[in-house]
Design a protein around this nucleic acid. Structure first.
Length: 833
RNA sequence: GCCGGGGUGGCGUAAUGGUAGCCGCAGCGGUCUUAAAAACCGCAGUCCCAACGGACGUGUGGGUUCGACUCCCACCCCCGGCACCA
């Protein structure tokens, strides 16, 4: 699922030798006393032996499904971004566990897909063996991180035991009416002779692998009818507890526009239908534009213009296929030589075809209102077409897109535009039989066919007699055959077409010879349902158990990156809705809560091989330990904000964890329990409060800062450390540094495991200060301060402030016009002059 | 172009409208050491001043307020998403 073509990072030790990069990577030698390797190994094996993170899914009373986006196991291993995300998600899960929830925290591998396949092609190894190696390496890395993963329930999308059910999902959607076949264009690289995913095409329409100009090719493909749920996908968003940024991205992607379909009469032809969100500007429609590939473009061309228009249409098609987008300032188009008529006035409106109108949106034709639309305006200027202002407020020569009052609009003059004029004119058009209110969306059906090798074969059979028939469920999985030469064929067919044993089969319907569909499905189909699989991962009789699903889903909390805000999360929502409608699920939204984490960047840039700033986490972990590394990542900045910066800062968290163990030596363990001083109690409860408030809000950085403050306070403390101080620290630290927290807890004599303890509660009555510093300002500038008992009343504060010698000097000869007192905070004296 | 999110010391960041810079990194000085590292203690926004102290300071310019990093208006820059979507 990870987007990531993350490439191999150079060793951080190599980089130390490179002077200009050294500032990111000055890793200090280790301190002596803290043996993180021993501590972390000890607890990881203890956790495993005792099954601490295995959840009895069918029995536990307070289920909490803590999900994080599963990684794509690249050849380079987990990168820092993965570690950051998993550390944050795990801290969340551990915190919830200590609130008393039974937290199920699974992880798996999203291992199919074009990235793996391309990488395998590049290095000349087979993806089957490559992925096995990568998964093993990922698993090792994940275990070292010390997250509370339940490894008894894991998934690997390339495992036939998993993709059997991905194929089942496809069949279920198909039978339920959510899958269909259609011809559509796919991106095609003429040099690599292969189909590309959209994201493999760069902004300049070149292939990301070879740089060739990408073209299009029309192929028959499978689509999933996500548009069946467009309105629901949009409407449900407002009720979901998701990061607002994520919801906004989905709203934009769905792209709802409300308007009307309008019919413009044409002499001696059927009317031309357009979609407009601004019917109120219809009196300003001075021309109309059809997309070059609109089905009626040639039909509506005057005979004497036909040759020129046909040539233009052909040229536009060539440019479109070649992926050559017009540059912004030029607006190519040509007149058709015929007119439509304004349905309200009968006025003639010339027809054009132009590339700026797209066939795929609305009706593929528009009424152009150059006075109030920038693109129409640009076209009008270029072809010297009339510009008629119909909404007041236009200044200068551009398009006025804003609001105003209707002018030049006959009986509608004076109405506010767009509203209420939009309603009124639409009603008039509807009344006259020229319009219908209408909503359009940008969302398109989901094409899932991939003419590639590394994915689950689509379980369909093409029979010359029966047509396209589904593979019977009992014949699943349709195994992906091991093909030595898995290079793309160059015909637009999948490499599977090379394998006659795979290709040739019999029709399950008539028993006659038939051929398998040789395409594989989109990797997003694999990940669209994996959260349903986890609780039932060990079941081979069903994709997901009904009871377990009822108990554990929808997912309580989902943590992931906003790079998947649209595709993965939208597809998952669609699949859930479809399965609900088909009676397989009792809910229609899969993720109750979703939080988007930020992105780790370095030197202001995304990590990438070309920038040479990819950091390999293993060396950090082996040198400083997973605990310090987790702490470091979460301490960098606010977890949910994009643009976290990574620097040399691991020293701080590493010192912090080392200091904890030294503090531990100062505890009077075993002997007399020390009473806690008022001062230490205050510091401790302040720390509890801060960490308790900040952790569930994902403000990990400030929670960690609060613990550092408390530790600093303890280090300054002379004499033995009260045991309760370290106990509290062990508990608060458990979500962040799970190994060290266990170690401290054990050495204090606590029962295994610290992760099964209850979270401490802050006592507010112990937190308040007895003495406070009250700042004395003159005209808002600090001039002196008072130290007084907390709660000293305003008049007393004012009296004391005015009595301060330094303040007296400032008052010299001036009149105090006003005094503003903020109790326990500030006294502000406002002087005249 | 449109839509988000951001601009605070050398760096990452922190601040219910009430002492801007907490916490940490890097840096500098010291203690310890034969030495170095580690550890520990201290200094540290900029400018002026010997010092006391003062002026300036949260992207820029305005505004509201006794008081603005915080609220309002306009603009600039960075990051991310979408992009002839009618």
């Amino acid at each position: 699922m990870s987007p990531a073509h993350v490439e191999s990072g150079r060793s951080i030790w190599d980089r130390r030798r490179s002077p200009e990069k050294a500032r990111y990577h000055q890793l200090p030698p280790m301190a002596s006393s803290y043996d993180h390797r021993a501590i972390e190994a000890k607890w990881q094996s203890r956790w495993q032996e005792t099954g601490l993170y295995r959840v009895a899914l069918d029995r536990v009373p307070r289920p909490y499904y803590n999900l994080m986006m599963f990684p794509y196991p690249s050849a380079e291993g987990l990168h820092v971004g993965n570690m950051f995300a998993f550390s944050g998600a795990d801290a969340h899960g551990r915190f919830q566990r200590m609130q008393g929830f039974d937290v199920f925290e699974p992880i798996g591998f999203d291992a199919f897909g074009i990235h793996s396949e391309n990488f395998a092609l590049k290095i000349g190894r087979h993806p089957t063996e490559l992925i096995a190696t990568n998964v093993a390496r990922f698993r090792g890395q994940l275990e070292k991180l010390g997250a509370q993963f339940d490894w008894s329930k894991t998934v690997d999308t390339t495992d036939p035991a998993y993709y059997r059910w991905t194929q089942w999902l496809f069949l279920t959607l198909w039978k339920g009416g959510f899958a269909y076949r259609a011809r559509r264009n796919v991106k095609w690289c003429p040099q690599d002779l292969t189909v590309l995913a959209d994201e493999q095409v760069l902004a300049d329409s070149t292939c990301e692998r070879c740089g060739a100009l990408v073209t299009e090719r029309e192929l028959e493909q499978w689509f999933l009818r996500i548009t069946a749920f467009t309105e629901r996908l949009l409407a449900n968003l407002s009720g979901l507890d998701w990061s607002e940024s994520t919801k906004l991205l989905q709203r934009h992607w769905i792209g709802r526009s409300q308007g009307a379909l309008l019919d413009f009469p044409i002499d001696d032809a059927d009317p031309l239908r357009v979609f407009s969100t601004r019917p109120d500007t219809i009196f300003g429609a001075t021309f109309m534009v059809l997309a070059p590939d609109h089905p009626r473009t040639l039909e509506l061309t005057a005979p004497e213009r036909l040759a020129e228009v046909a040539a233009f249409v052909a040229e536009a098609a060539r440019r479109r296929i070649a992926g050559q987008r017009e540059d912004e300032n030029s607006t190519r188009g040509v007149a058709l030589g015929r007119d439509a008529r304004n349905p309200l006035t009968g006025a003639r409106i010339p027809l054009y075809t132009a590339e700026y109108v797209l066939s795929g949106y609305g009706t593929g034709a528009i009424m152009a209102v150059p006075a109030h639309d920038q693109r129409d305006h640009a076209f009008a200027v270029q072809y010297h077409l009339a510009v008629v202002e119909v909404v007041s407020g236009r200044d200068g020569s551009g398009a006025h897109v804003g609001s105003g009052v209707l002018v030049n609009s006959a009986q509608f003059d004076g109405l506010g535009a767009p509203d209420p004029a939009r309603e009124v004119i639409t009603a008039a058009l509807v009344e006259a039989g020229f319009g219908t209110p209408h909503v359009t969306y940008k969302l398109r059906d989901w094409g899932i066919s991939r003419q590639r090798y590394w994915g689950p074969p689509i379980p369909a059979i093409h029979c010359p007699n029966c047509g396209v028939v589904p593979v019977p469920e009992e014949d699943l999985p349709v195994l992906l055959p091991y093909i030595e030469d898995f290079r793309p064929l160059g015909t637009g067919e999948s490499p599977l077409a090379r394998d006659p044993d795979f290709l040739n089969t019999t029709c399950p319907n008539c028993g006659g010879p038939a051929k398998r569909d040789t395409d594989v499905s989109d990797t997003f189909l694999d990940s669209s349902w994996y959260y349903l699989r986890y609780p039932s991962a060990d079941r081979d009789d069903v994709p997901f158990d009904r009871e377990l699903t009822r108990k554990w889903l929808p997912v309580t909390y989902y943590d992931g990156g906003n790079e998947h805000a649209v595709l993965h999360l939208l597809y998952s929502r669609f699949v859930t809705m479809a399965l609900q409608q088909l009676g397989f699920l009792d809910f229609e939204e899969p993720f109750t809560q979703f939080r988007a984490h930020g992105m780790i960047v370095m030197g202001g840039a995304k990590m990438s091989k070309s920038r040479g700033n990819v950091v390999v986490p293993d060396e950090y972990i082996s040198r400083f330990g997973a605990d310090a590394f987790r702490l470091y990542l979460l301490y960098l900045g606010p977890y949910q904000e994009s643009g976290n910066f990574i620097d040399t800062g691991i020293n701080g968290p590493y010192r912090f964890v080392s200091q904890l163990l030294r503090l531990l030596d100062r505890v009077n363990a075993g002997g007399v329990e020390l009473p806690e001083s008022r001062e230490l109690a205050r510091a401790r409860h302040r720390c509890i409060r801060r960490v308790t408030l900040d952790t569930p809000e994902l403000k990990y950085n400030t929670a960690i800062a609060a613990m550092m403050i408390f530790v600093k306070r303890l280090r300054e403390h002379e004499g033995p450390i009260p045991k309760v101080a370290m106990e509290t620290l062990a508990l608060l630290l458990a979500p962040y540094c799970p190994h060290l927290a266990e170690e401290i807890w054990e050495r204090l004599g606590g029962d295994y495991s610290v992760h099964q303890q209850k979270w401490p509660v802050a006592d507010e009555s112990l937190i308040a200060d007895e003495q406070v510093v009250v700042v004395v300002c003159i005209n808002g500038k600090k001039r002196d301060q008072l130290v007084v008992a907390a709660g000293t009343d305003a008049s007393e504060l004012e009296r004391q402030a005015l009595a301060l010698p330094r303040i007296q000097q400032w008052l010299d000869g001036k009149l105090v016009r006003r005094v503003v007192v903020v109790p326990d905070r500030q006294v502000n004296l406002v002087l005249t002059g």
